[in-house]
């Protein structure tokens, strides 16, 4: 599914517990908006956005998957064929990251070929001191805020770059 008329197309999934901000991150990235109220995602919603990496156009097809504490419960067909995924935690809620090492391990088994990024979201809710004191089991690749937009574009672009680079090295 990699090649489209425009360039390269990649499926990515956003995963993590409920209310960590997966849908808000996608909304910020795709439409530049931040939803005013929390609305639970159920099942699946698919969005897409095209990013430009130098001369290369990359279409990211983003599967927004309902929050799930136990990844085993995610339907396997939601994850099949994913080139990459972003595991999102809410920095302000320990319950969303206390088991993240185990959750990531399970996801790696379910998507052995997919590239992974970890996002520590809701950065805006913590002070610098609180951020420094956090001891997450897995260090996030990006500290993001869907509310302010901080690091959101950077994170999606970085994942696109990783996926393109992966193509180049495996070709």
């Amino acid at each position: 599914m990699d090649s489209t008329k425009q360039g390269i197309s990649k499926k990515i999934a956003l995963l993590g517990s409920h209310a960590v901000g997966k849908t808000s991150l996608i909304s910020r990235f795709v439409t530049r908006e931040f939803p005013n109220e929390y609305l639970t995602t159920i099942g699946l919603r698919v969005d897409q956005k095209t990013v430009q990496l130098g001369d290369l156009t990359v279409e990211l097809i983003i599967w927004d998957i309902a929050g799930q504490d136990d990844p085993v419960r995610i339907p396997q067909y939601y994850l099949n064929g994913a080139h990459g995924y972003i595991f999102v935690v809410d920095l302000s809620r320990e319950s969303t990251w206390s088991q993240m090492d185990h959750q990531i391990q399970v996801l790696e088994a379910m998507m052995p070929k997919a590239k992974r990024l970890v996002a520590g979201n809701k950065k805006d809710l913590l002070s610098d001191k609180e951020l420094q004191e956090l001891k997450l089991p897995v260090t996030p690749d990006f500290l993001t805020s869907a509310f302010t937009g901080e690091n959101v574009d950077e994170m999606f672009h970085h994942l696109a770059q990783i996926l393109v680079h992966d193509d180049a090295t495996t070709a």
Binding site: G43, L44, R45, P75, Y77
Partner: peptide, 15 residues
């Protein structure tokens, strides 16, 4: 099986 998809079938937004 892809259950519970929030999708627009032409003009019909639904699950």
């Amino acid at each position: 099986d892809i259950p519970c998809v929030d999708f627009v079938l032409e003009q019909r937004q639904g699950y």
